[in-house]
Write a protein that binds this DNA or RNA. Structure first.
Length: 431
RNA sequence: UCCUCGAUAGCUCAAUUGGUAGAGCGCUCGGCUGUUAACCGAGUGGUUGCAGGUUCGAGUCCUGCUCGAGGAGCCA
């Protein structure tokens, strides 16, 4: 027999006597009877304490309970329609494990800044706990899919000597007296690892020092970066849609309780089935023109354009073959149309924007050398990267998936700052 | 970096035309034997973000600053 029970396992145990360990979320008094809501991380249960049924010590301990006090409660499990969840604990004994005075978070509403300032306590609330559980399940699904399809986890360094793409802002650090940077993408390293292991993926934190201040941006976020040898552009898209579909299906099956806590409408998720629609950049321009949002060829999409394009379909949509001029140096031009790159963004529906960005990489050593020059990138820094084309270069592709954006969309959350335990944003590096 | 909005009790907010800073929640005390963010009564609580200005008088008007939120750009 277990010494204590998880609250999630209580249902069905009636009329057994059990012990539960947890925290008091709130309690109500009605004179000679107290109702204490207890949370243990697996669920919440109502403990009922009657003055005439317990010792004086237990009664006094119960009367003195405060919000978030840690307690040990023993009692009989019983079904009762009046109890939230249908099951409650008729208490025989209650003891304080850890006191809690003047808990800052009340059951009433709070503002964003106050909650983020108390993020270490905010995570105790049912909604935030559900988000973190959903995140864990999504990460599990991503890794299960990749592991089951022959991808080898091979993480690139987080401390890097130079910008991977040379565009976005990096966080600099002092590396034994030399300048170094926190990785903003492991992609170039993943290409090297794909030449060694075939199919690889990285799963780790990524750092961007951009002064982005929106509900879609974090300074530190987690990214999955698969890289696949002998994989062309079209196959790359298939991997992406299979992965995203698998994650959604897995979450529907295994995280339904979390989605329910979040009030997530499941119908849009059920429509996420491969293959996803594909819209070329040119076709996208046409759709935007029809919708009264005309752009000139070569223009980048703004947030409003992405939201509109994402809203056209019930599943995520690929926008592919962007003008090459503004894209990363390593992206392969379309052989049939060199002015566009074999790159695609995957836009989530319901206004969540880009969740994946991927491309086929340049395999020609001559073209890659030319691109490095055109982008004014130092040849010596990228010499090791050129080696990948000098020694057995093959067609290869890969993509980067933003974990927090995926979680935000799947959970239909307002802001990515809730999808990670302790968000690092432009204005917050605390707690 | 730019645009918009905001900052009043521990929290969420109110304060009419420039005229005595309030409510709910929290907390403390009391009441209540089935509560559901319990309820009822009493109490507690303020350098109105900071600095200056206008005025008989500023939470309110003006200037500068600080901090925050949303958005743009950039991106996952």
């Amino acid at each position: 027999m277990k010494e204590w029970q998880r609250i999630a396992d209580l249902s069905g145990l009636e009329p057994e006597s059990v012990t539960v360990l947890g925290w008091v979320t709130h309690h109500r008094s009605s004179g000679r009877i107290e109702f204490v809501a207890i949370r243990d991380g697996t669920g919440e249960v109502q403990a009922v304490v009657r003055a005439d049924a317990v010792s004086a010590e237990t009664w006094e301990a119960t009367r003195a309970l405060t919000q978030e006090a840690a307690v040990r409660v023993s009692g009989q499990v019983r079904a009762d329609a009046r109890a939230p969840g249908g099951v409650e604990l008729l208490v025989g004994e209650l003891a304080l494990v850890g006191a809690s005075a003047d808990y800052p978070l009340t059951p009433k509403e709070h503002g964003t800044d106050f909650l983020m300032e108390h993020r270490h306590l905010w995570v105790r609330t049912p909604r935030q706990a559900a988000v973190l559980r959903l995140r864990a399940r999504i990460i599990h699904a991503i890794r299960a899919f990749l592991d089951d399809h022959g991808f080898v986890l091979a993480d690139p360094p987080i401390i890097t000597p130079a910008a991977a793409e040379g565009t976005t802002t990096l966080f600099g650090i002092d590396y034994f007296g030399e300048a170094a940077y926190l990785s903003q993408s492991g992609q170039l390293y993943m290409e090297a690892l794909a030449m060694a292991l075939g199919r690889v993926y990285s799963f780790g934190p990524t750092f961007r020092a951009e002064k982005s201040k929106t509900r879609r941006h974090l300074s530190e976020f987690w990214m999955v970066e698969p890289e696949i040898a002998f994989c062309d552009f079209d196959e790359n898209l298939v991997w992406q849609e299979e992965l995203v579909s698998y994650v959604v299906e897995d979450v529907l099956r295994h995280a339904s309780r979390e989605l329910e806590t979040l009030g997530r409408d499941l119908d849009p998720l059920k429509k996420v089935q491969p293959p996803f629609p594909r819209l070329s950049y040119d076709e996208a321009l046409g759709r935007l023109g029809e919708a009264g949002m005309p752009l000139s060829w070569g223009d980048d999409f703004g947030a409003a354009h992405e939201t509109y394009l994402g809203s056209l379909f019930s599943a995520p949509v690929f926008i592919h073959r962007f003008p090459a001029a503004h894209k990363a140096f390593y992206m392969k031009p379309d052989p049939l149309r060199p002015e566009v790159a074999l790159a695609a963004d995957l836009l989530a529906p319901e206004g969540y924007g880009e969740i994946v960005g991927g491309s086929q990489r340049i395999d020609s050593p001559d073209l890659l050398a030319r691109r490095l020059q055109e982008h004014h990138l130092p040849a010596d820094t990228y010499d090791w990267y050129m080696d990948l084309r000098r020694y057995g270069s093959v067609p290869h592709s890969g993509f980067g998936l933003g974990v927090e954006r995926l979680v935000a969309w799947v959970g239909k959350l307002e802001h990515v700052r809730e999808t990670i335990p302790f968000a690092r944003t432009l204005t917050r590096v605390w707690p």
